[in-house]
């Protein structure tokens, strides 16, 4: 399967080199694309200087917009699957092969790189949101997604097309829940994630609350008003 690694990058000047260099050095068999989401720092300049494969958005469109750009790219170039990969070094490329293998073996639409398949989810403040969303998804789909907030997700060709060209398919847990209800086959694959190496996390307290509200409302309420189709 021809796989594309989509790396949305917003103000990741401190991390992007390390992330992409590791991919090109250790995993040259995968193609990648960096989607610069209108960064205010040197992200785009660094990518140009290093000759990275870059899609450069001139204005900031948000994570969903940047990711969707990667999906459009993957679709245009005929990739069989595409993986959402963080530009801050949190995701570990060692596990991409496992995820692709799982997708091929079980003929899945989406494989989530999950921290908690074989590992137990720790009980901590950071995992409250994670568990809450897990509960919402379980309630509405009957399926247990143990790490719904994981940002490492692999999509097959069918999903690429859907996510590239439709509205309201951001790379978030509510999309996963909705797609499960549309009949998409979703499974998780155990991965280990790194701690963020440099830069600041996007999620502060206010943003976390807003994120949780949006995602939970979307899963619990708005989902039922969307047309179910694949």
């Amino acid at each position: 399967m021809k796989c594309l690694i989509i790396i949305p990058a917003y103000n990741e000047a401190l991390n992007i080199e390390q992330v992409v260099d590791r991919l090109t050095k250790e995993y040259p068999q995968y193609d990648y694309v960096v989607v610069n989401d209108g960064s205010k720092d040197e992200t785009a300049a660094i990518c140009r200087k290093r000759g990275y494969n870059l899609v450069d958005l001139k204005v900031n469109t948000g994570l969903a917009g940047a990711f969707q750009t990667g999906m459009k790219y993957a679709y245009a170039l005929g990739y069989d699957c595409a993986i959402q990969f963080d530009g801050d070094g949190q995701h570990n490329p060692d596990y991409i092969a496992d995820m692709i293998a799982k997708m091929e073996q079980e003929n899945l639409d989406i494989v989530i790189g999950s921290r908690f398949v074989t590992e137990k989810k720790p009980i901590s403040a950071r995992m409250i949101g994670n568990t809450l969303i897990e509960g919402c998804i379980l309630l509405t789909t009957g399926k247990r997604v143990k790490d719904p907030t994981s940002g490492m997700r692999l999509f097959n060709r069918r999903m690429i097309k859907k996510l590239a060209y439709s509205m309201n398919y951001g790379p978030e847990p509510d999309t996963i829940a909705y797609l499960i209800n549309c009949g998409a086959k979703v499974a998780e694959c155990q991965v280990v994630m790194n701690e963020r190496t440099a830069g600041e996390s996007y999620l502060n307290f206010t943003r976390t609350i807003r994120y949780m509200t949006t995602v939970c409302c979307s899963i619990l309420i708005l989902q039922w008003f969307r047309k179910k189709e694949l």
């Binding site: 494969n53 870059l54 899609v55 001139k58 917009g65 969707q68 750009t69 790219y73």
Partner: peptide, 20 residues
Amino acid sequence: ENKLDTLVQELAVAENLREA
């Protein structure tokens, strides 16, 4: 907003393909 996003995205992808 959706139209604008689409426009920016298509433009950027096209630019990448042209450069390649």
